[in-house]
Design a protein around this nucleic acid. Structure first.
Lengths: 357, 357
DNA sequence: GTGAAAGCGCTAACAT
DNA sequence: ATGTTAGCGCTTTCAC
């Protein structure tokens, strides 16, 4: 076991090139007039010694950390994965490294992570996805925002609602309510009136917005909202499966399902199939997210497309733009992707669907 | 715009608590005897000032950077996403932050990233997935390994073959060849003899191994390998779709498909369906990966399960274990998940499949 | 165009 | 148990 011979420092390079460390630093930074000959000697030394700067030393002496942090609930869900991908790409283009952390939806963990990000002096911290907007949340977020701002980091809220003028945070949202409205209206315009809504956890901002869009659409069509048709739960496949099975078991009447996201839709599809219901002949299903696998579901899923990548890229862009004030607000659009899971509502007397009353 | 009032430093805390910086440092580190009263005063000061350490300063003065880096081709593919998730979780449990970078399969980009990781003094650098094993690759990887080792980082090769004793790198593989063998044997044991292999890019380590497993199984069953049945390409859905369509168009005879991964399988399924072939009655299909959406394909896909999460976790664990030498080697197992896409080969004269000769 | 030197905020000896 | 101090490796005035 040979001594881990210490890495060369800028001083070693300076010595090897016969110049001062200042000159080496300037040459490496590239933003300063340096004689061509000197530069060449330095670059040679760098190569010979296999020198790389120490990012911590650099970050410590003033300049930026070159790090962008993104915090998500979970990295494997396509919703987060695609947003993260957008962040990563844009960060890379901006010469930044990308730190990824997960909270699994735990607010305390989120708090802890934001603290870690402050320690890292990340250039930007991007908080993604829904949260429970309690009083406590507001207060906490306000502290985050200030702490980060003082540490010189930009805070961006991605896919979660704006907090208003007094808090230094950039907001990059997608039109959640609008998307849910469109999805519901799509079903409504196909003649469906009994539409089950498989929502997310009650209280979570994203869930509430989607349910809001659902209600708004119903109201616009003068269809009363039946509480028996809306349920809350985790937006995962198993939950979609269970909630749909339960609806069927209870004998609740419905001709369409608006799933809180595509995972839930996949579960609903499976439950329906198992119960012998045909989609879309007996029951129509519409999803939310438009993740890549949606087109391979059985049948291919009609769903609402969210601009995941763009959400991520925009977040980074806003945070990093030089003259950017904190507290900007952008809202990205959504649109429906029509595939094969929605059809006209079956005639009420056709008897295939629920009870022949 | 108020002055960005500078963040408090350890010195401010020391002053506020009426102690020396050393005491503060020790208290915060927690690994040193400090009088209860003193500790309390310090913690109070920390809270009052909203102090957080500067990770760069800490990293600079000797100790570790608390960072684990993972480099993947692409973050959105479930294969990488799930491995990354395992890495992230284990890193978090070990009190590390997780840096994620993507190469999009570009070896030069990989080189660049490894350099960045050296700058960051990451505790561990985990390179994930297949590579093109050229001479150049070997040489390059050897340089990586030494550069990283000198910077005090552990290098782990995850899901790529070991490089042998002389290179300081930990290898965490899954049984790629074995998995491919099992998949092919599964088809063979169902009576299939004409099995199309939709492989990955030629030259990529992972592709070669899977094709090797395929050939080995065929050979074990004394079935000749027909080059017309094996193709190379990107392991994405579109490629699976196109290659399958092409096979059909050419009139190549086959009763089963071994897809290089589940995305390719999804594409193959779509192409088959479009061509009026039933799966598994006319053609059987087996995938590779077992990503969550596989069970929702039409029909639910029989596939080879890879221990993604475990691969990630193990990589971190090996790299971080105190007494761990560099250059260990672990191989994780795989297994077949049976669903509905494989059935007995159709009787050759049943006429449903390819040419009635 | 180049050098000298003062930190950046922290940890780890080394004292006491 | 606590304090003093010397760096860690780099950037950045300020001189020349």
């Amino acid at each position: 076991m040979s001594e881990p011979k210490k890495r060369p420092t800028i001083r070693d390079v300076a010595k090897a090139a016969g110049v001062s460390v200042a000159t080496v630093s300037r040459t490496l930074a590239g933003d300063y007039p340096v004689a061509a000959a000197t530069r060449a000697r330095i670059q040679r030394a760098v190569r010979d010694l296999d020198y790389v700067v120490n990012a911590h030393a650099r970050a410590l002496s003033g300049t930026t950390s070159k790090i962008v942090a993104i915090v998500v609930h979970d990295t494997t869900s396509p919703f987060f994965a695609h947003i993260a991908s957008g962040v990563e790409q844009q960060a890379t283009e901006a010469g930044r490294l990308c730190l990824v952390c997960t909270t699994h939806g735990d607010p305390d963990r989120e708090l802890e992570i934001v603290k870690l990000m402050r320690e890292q002096h990340a250039d930007a911290v991007i908080l993604v996805g829904g949260v429970f907007e309690s009083e406590e949340y507001l207060e906490r977020m306000s502290r985050y925002a200030h702490g980060l701002a003082e540490a010189g980091s930009k805070l961006v809220l991605c896919g979660r609602p704006s907090l208003g003028r007094d808090i230094p945070a950039i907001t990059v949202e997608y039109d959640n309510t609008g998307g849910a409205f469109a999805a519901t209206a799509h079903l409504l315009s196909h003649g469906h009136r009994r539409i089950a809504m498989l929502g997310g956890f009650a209280g979570l901002t994203t869930s509430e917005q989607r349910i809001q869009g659902y209600s708004d659409a119903l109201t616009a069509y003068r269809v009363p909202v039946d509480p028996a048709l809306v349920s809350h739960g985790e937006l995962v496949r198993a939950s979609g499966y269970e909630r749909t099975s339960e609806l069927l078991r209870q004998g609740t009447e419905f001709t369409a399902i608006f799933a809180g996201n595509d995972h839930v839709a996949a579960g609903a599809l499976a439950a329906l199939r198992e119960a012998g219901k045909r989609v879309p002949e007996d029951v129509s299903v519409i999803g939310f997210d438009d993740t890549p696998f949606s087109e391979d579901l059985n049948p291919p899923l009609t769903t609402v497309h969210l601009p995941h990548q763009e959400l991520g890229r925009t977040s980074v862009r806003m945070a990093l733009q030089a003259n950017g004030s904190s507290r900007q607000h952008v809202m990205l659009g959504t649109h429906i992707v029509v595939r094969d899971s929605v059809a006209a509502a079956p005639r009420p007397d056709s008897g295939r669907s629920r009870g022949r009353a």
